[in-house]
Nucleic acid binder design. Structure first.
Lengths: 206, 206
DNA sequence: TAGATTGTTAATCGATTAACAATC
DNA sequence: TAGATTGTTAATCGATTAACAATC
């Protein structure tokens, strides 16, 4: 019971608790109960306590959980203590939107570079980030020690680019391209296809 | 065993199979085996067959599954047979990116309207969709019989707008705002916070 | 036929839920 | 103390996996 192995659904909920906690902190709230958190997320309080058990987060009977401590622990578990440098591959409309999405700084990443195959976009500055050509990928990743890449290309060559990223030292890939990616052991891939998420919705409507 | 109840992970994978199948169809492939599909998605072939069992999709021993039939069945299950009218709430950078994301037509929805709180955006035309003020939400939803809404507002008032959407007749909400939403029985909500997805990645890196 | 592939059953695994003992 | 809330154990549920029988 030393290797902290947190279930994926729990990891996702931890991030959701954090968003609520940041609001509570602004309101100056010191303690929060599992019941209050549960209500915000439309889940049961037992699930909150179970999640905190997995995360080894402790509360106090009758008082609840201390807000600043909770925030600190969740940040630590998610590696959100300070934004880590990241790059984005594909500076189309989605990539552009992501470069302008300020919340990412709070979610542990900060874009230090963006790449595109289209030479017309190269040299442009989007929200303070310079667009480079995809050929310069390796040099930037290596020189800046970047570990996280976000894929916002429409498709095509995705697996080839992934292989290059991995070779250059990338350890985590967040993939929005409409193709599921694979990567070798030791490299984390989170596939975030809009199609999957939308399928769950449309399947239930009508 | 009449009420087709398909597990959510299976629904998500069905959409991923479809993306692969559309490519195979372009290549003129007639049949595909569970093994071939599994390899594309980095999963096991047994899982593919189990998914097809849930979906009541039939194949032929030794031949595999017929590609056009598979596409047709998955489209039917996901309600992707023809694009359904949808609206988008929040015409910021993410909303704009989504309005320009052409794949959605293939994923069962088509944006017929967009709304924003910022009056400076009202009247603008983004990728052929006119931006209306959020106050006109009800009239558009009701007059066009729209059932699906996508939330791309940065936060604030989200739950209030949700209640209005539901009252106006919306049956499915795809929520990108950094707040989990709840809705009454009969209204589907799919929460798609970037924070949750990203948390799974960053937790594993470093 | 032999062999490849589907289809299905049963075993396993892991997350959720229920219930209540422990604590302040 | 009484009562509220945490913390934990055990039961349940549901998805995945393994294995193999059925089929062409």
């Amino acid at each position: 019971m030393n290797t902290l192995e947190i279930p994926e659904p729990t990891v996702k909920r931890l991030s959701s608790y954090l968003l609520v906690l940041l609001q509570l902190q602004e309101q100056g709230k010191r303690y929060v109960s599992s019941n209050e958190l549960a209500d915000e997320l439309f889940i049961e309080s037992g699930k909150v306590r179970k999640d905190f058990q997995y995360a080894r987060i402790k509360g106090r009977p009758k008082r609840g959980y201390e807000v600043p401590y909770l925030i600190q622990e969740i940040d630590r578990i998610l590696n959100w203590t300070g934004p880590k440098p990241a790059i984005i591959i594909g500076a189309g409309s989605l990539g552009t939107a992501m470069l302008g999405y300020e919340n990412f700084n709070r979610y542990g990443i900060k874009f230090m570079g963006a790449f595109d195959v289209d030479r017309r976009r190269v040299g442009m500055d989007i929200h303070g980030v310079k667009i480079s050509h995809i050929d310069d990928l390796e040099s930037v990743v290596k020189s800046k020690g970047i570990k996280i890449a976000v894929m916002t290309l429409p498709g095509e060559n995705i697996q080839e680019i992934t292989d290059r990223l991995v070779k250059a030292g990338i350890k985590g890939i967040w993939n929005f391209a409409p193709v599921r990616l694979g990567a070798p052991e030791g490299v984390a891939v989170v596939n975030a296809q809009f199609s999957e998420s939308l399928a769950v919705l449309t399947q239930q409507v009508d």
